[in-house]
Amino acid sequence: MYQILVVDDSVLDVDCITFLIKKYELPLEVTTAVNGQDALELFRKPENHYDILFTDIRMPFLDGLGLSKEVRKLSPNTRIIIFSGFNDFEYAKTAITIGVEDYLMKPVIPDEFVSVMTRVINGVEETNRQIRTRRSETKLLKNHMLWLAVNGKSSMLADSAPFLKDRYTGLMLVECDNEFFSLDGISFQEKLADILSTPFDYLNLDPSRSILFFKEGAFLFPCAQSVCLCAEKEFHQKCCVAFQTLPDNGSISQVYTQLEERLENHFFFPEQSIFLPDGPDHPYASSGHISIDIVSDDLRLKDYDSLMLHLEDLFESLKHEKTRSLIFVKYCFTELMKEIIHYLPD
């Protein structure tokens, strides 16, 4: 179904257009407005999208031509049809300059209406097809450039193409024991896009391995926990994750090699899900990032090595923290015991 916004201060005319759309079973979902100003407010809402604007010319507050000019700025791909009871050449001439699709006279003749709407709907379908094709081609090219960067074949990622200007700040390697990414890789990517609060690009390397490129300064450890929990909860799949910050796009290949080496430890620690960056100074093990939520995620993942590290960090942070009250410390340990009892009743 395509979205059409019908705008007219005459309720009778709006009902007529709505009736014709239903009668001839046109694939259109109708929204209505009584004047150009109200219609413009609908277009300005980011959650709204209209494929077709069907508007009268003479209306209070903002007429159809003024509305069409504003809509052309806000939504260039929206097809505009004007209908009016005034057979005025000046209106038609202005409509042409705006880029209006067609100009119908009142009263609307059903056969003419259906003919115009069918042609416009076909135009919308063709435009959408071209947009999907361009997006698909762009995605394929971008994935190819990311693959080159991972394999050390493109050290100038940011200058590779106009749409590869992203400054990546973190890399996350996700690995599974089976060929999970060849079966559910697309669904997994879509699910991650819903649950992760920071933008990222996703590249499927092979059936058992994928990589996430984070575009903003994200807290990578909570993201890693979310990835593991998503795989387990939504797909009943256990995976292990390694992550690290990126100094610049040119270091992608080098950091990726480090992540590969870190995940080799999974052989020795099969129960561990998240492999932290090396060294005691990395920010993800610092007390400032440890919370009850992180400990809860460790328990849900049964990642006891990570749990012990985070408990030690939590103990140390509370031990040396001079601004926390005794009540706060008691609260932390009470909540901690609740979590442990919940997840480890035995």
Rank of each mutant, 00 (worst) to 15 (best):
L173M: 02
N87F: 05
K215D: 03
S115F: 13
D88W: 04
H144F: 13
Y304F: 15
G250M: 06
I327D: 12
M105I: 13
A158K: 11
K322R: 14
T138V: 13
I109E: 12
S273Y: 03
K45I: 04
N48P: 00
T94E: 13
T257M: 15
S84I: 07
E264Q: 14
T32N: 10
A224Y: 04
I4M: 13
E260V: 12
D281G: 07
V255C: 08
V329A: 11
C239Q: 01
N48H: 01
E125C: 06
I81T: 00
K45L: 10
V329C: 09
C176R: 09
H310D: 08
A285R: 12
S68Y: 03
A224G: 06
L157K: 06
K139W: 07
K330L: 07
V150Y: 00
C228S: 06
Q189M: 11
M172N: 03
E339M: 07
K302W: 06
G279R: 04
S317V: 14
A193E: 09
E175G: 04
L40I: 00
D305Y: 13
L220E: 09
E316K: 10
I327F: 11
E25T: 14
E316H: 11
D38C: 03
F19Q: 14
A161W: 10
S291L: 03
G85T: 04
S155R: 13
Y256K: 03
L301A: 01
H49P: 00
F221T: 06
F43H: 01
N249T: 05
I341P: 00
D298G: 05
V108G: 08
G217M: 11
T257S: 15
P207A: 06
V34H: 07
K191Y: 03
A39K: 04
S208K: 13
D15C: 14
F221Q: 11
R119K: 09
S115C: 10
D346V: 11
K330Y: 10
E312I: 11
A285I: 15
P46L: 03
F188S: 05
N122Q: 05
F180V: 09
S136E: 12
G85V: 01
H282Q: 15
P199Q: 03
M308E: 15
G217Y: 12
V120R: 00
F221L: 11
I57Q: 00
G170D: 08
N48A: 01
F163Q: 12
V114W: 11
E101L: 04
K233E: 15
F181L: 00
H266P: 02
K302F: 10
R209T: 11
S251G: 08
I4T: 08
R324G: 09
I109C: 07
P110C: 05
F268S: 08
M156L: 14
M105P: 04
P222K: 01
V116H: 02
I109N: 14
D201M: 05
L309C: 09
N265Q: 08
E312Q: 13
H310W: 06
I186V: 14
S187C: 09
